[in-house]
Amino acid sequence: PDDLEKRARELLKRGKNPDEIREYLRNAGYDQSQAEEALKRAL
């Protein structure tokens, strides 16, 4: 898994919901489609 996916998994483990994770990834400078893909793979 790429770093983005790892980060998404990490956040899920900490109890973040998908919307929070999307926002976090966007704020971290990733584009929307990258964030969506990583989140899908992590779920």
Results as ranks from 00 to 15, higher is better:
residue 35 A to P: 01
residue 6 K to F: 13
residue 4 L to R: 03
residue 29 G to H: 02
residue 18 P to A: 12
residue 41 R to G: 05
residue 33 S to T: 14
residue 22 R to V: 15
residue 35 A to Q: 04
residue 36 E to L: 05
residue 32 Q to H: 13
residue 24 Y to G: 03
residue 29 G to Y: 02
residue 37 E to H: 07
residue 43 L to Q: 08
residue 33 S to D: 14
residue 15 G to H: 03
residue 19 D to Y: 05
residue 41 R to K: 13
residue 13 K to V: 07
residue 27 N to G: 09
residue 16 K to H: 13
residue 10 E to F: 04
residue 32 Q to R: 12
residue 18 P to L: 12
residue 36 E to D: 11
residue 15 G to N: 03
residue 21 I to C: 01
residue 32 Q to L: 13
residue 19 D to V: 06
residue 14 R to H: 11
residue 24 Y to V: 11
residue 43 L to A: 05
residue 12 L to F: 05
residue 23 E to M: 07
residue 42 A to C: 06
residue 33 S to H: 14
residue 38 A to V: 09
residue 41 R to V: 06
residue 40 K to E: 12
residue 9 R to T: 08
residue 6 K to M: 14
residue 14 R to L: 15
residue 15 G to E: 01
residue 38 A to E: 02
residue 26 R to P: 00
residue 12 L to M: 06
residue 25 L to D: 00
residue 27 N to Q: 13
residue 43 L to F: 07
residue 4 L to C: 11
residue 2 D to T: 12
residue 11 L to P: 00
residue 21 I to N: 00
residue 10 E to P: 00
residue 38 A to R: 01
residue 8 A to W: 04
residue 21 I to Q: 00
residue 9 R to H: 07
residue 34 Q to A: 13
residue 43 L to W: 06
residue 35 A to D: 01
residue 2 D to G: 11
residue 8 A to N: 00
residue 27 N to D: 10
residue 17 N to F: 07
residue 5 E to H: 12
residue 16 K to N: 07
residue 39 L to R: 00
residue 37 E to G: 06
residue 29 G to A: 02
residue 27 N to L: 14
residue 8 A to Y: 03
residue 23 E to H: 06
residue 12 L to T: 02
residue 16 K to E: 05
residue 17 N to R: 11
residue 42 A to S: 03
residue 36 E to S: 04
residue 21 I to L: 03
residue 6 K to R: 14
residue 26 R to L: 14
residue 41 R to N: 08
residue 42 A to H: 02
residue 8 A to K: 00
residue 14 R to S: 14
residue 24 Y to F: 13
residue 32 Q to G: 10
residue 24 Y to R: 03
residue 4 L to K: 03
residue 28 A to R: 08
residue 20 E to K: 03
residue 11 L to E: 03
residue 23 E to Y: 04
residue 17 N to L: 12
residue 15 G to S: 02
residue 17 N to E: 09
residue 2 D to Y: 10
residue 8 A to T: 10
residue 25 L to W: 05
residue 1 P to F: 13
residue 22 R to G: 03
residue 9 R to F: 06
residue 36 E to V: 04
residue 11 L to Q: 04
residue 12 L to A: 04
residue 17 N to T: 15
residue 41 R to Q: 07
residue 6 K to V: 11
residue 13 K to E: 09
residue 5 E to Q: 10
residue 21 I to Y: 02
residue 6 K to T: 11
residue 7 R to T: 15
residue 9 R to M: 09
residue 34 Q to M: 13
residue 24 Y to D: 06
residue 21 I to R: 00
residue 31 D to K: 06
residue 6 K to A: 14
residue 5 E to T: 14
residue 18 P to R: 06
residue 1 P to D: 12
residue 41 R to Y: 05
residue 27 N to A: 14
residue 6 K to L: 13
residue 22 R to E: 04
residue 2 D to L: 12
residue 15 G to A: 02
residue 3 D to G: 09
residue 27 N to P: 00
residue 34 Q to F: 07
residue 1 P to R: 11
residue 39 L to G: 00
residue 9 R to N: 05
residue 43 L to T: 06
residue 10 E to N: 06
residue 16 K to V: 13
residue 14 R to Y: 09
residue 4 L to W: 06
residue 25 L to R: 00
residue 4 L to I: 12
residue 15 G to K: 02
residue 10 E to C: 13
residue 13 K to P: 00
residue 4 L to M: 08
residue 24 Y to C: 08
residue 13 K to D: 09
residue 41 R to M: 08
residue 2 D to W: 10
residue 19 D to R: 07
residue 27 N to C: 10
residue 14 R to A: 15
residue 1 P to L: 15
residue 31 D to E: 11
residue 15 G to L: 03
residue 34 Q to R: 11
residue 13 K to R: 14
residue 23 E to K: 06
residue 30 Y to W: 08
residue 33 S to C: 11
residue 20 E to M: 05
residue 28 A to F: 08
residue 3 D to F: 13
residue 34 Q to V: 13
residue 34 Q to C: 10
residue 34 Q to K: 10
residue 15 G to R: 02
residue 30 Y to P: 01
residue 19 D to W: 08
residue 20 E to W: 13
residue 3 D to E: 14
residue 29 G to S: 02
residue 24 Y to L: 14
residue 42 A to R: 01
residue 21 I to M: 02
residue 12 L to I: 08
residue 8 A to D: 00
residue 30 Y to G: 03
residue 8 A to M: 11
residue 32 Q to S: 13
residue 14 R to I: 13
residue 39 L to V: 11
residue 37 E to S: 08
residue 20 E to D: 06
residue 12 L to S: 02
residue 12 L to W: 03
residue 1 P to A: 13
residue 37 E to R: 08
residue 38 A to N: 01
residue 39 L to A: 02
residue 15 G to T: 02
residue 7 R to V: 15
residue 14 R to D: 12
residue 8 A to F: 05
residue 14 R to T: 11
residue 31 D to P: 12
residue 17 N to M: 10
residue 43 L to E: 04
residue 23 E to D: 10
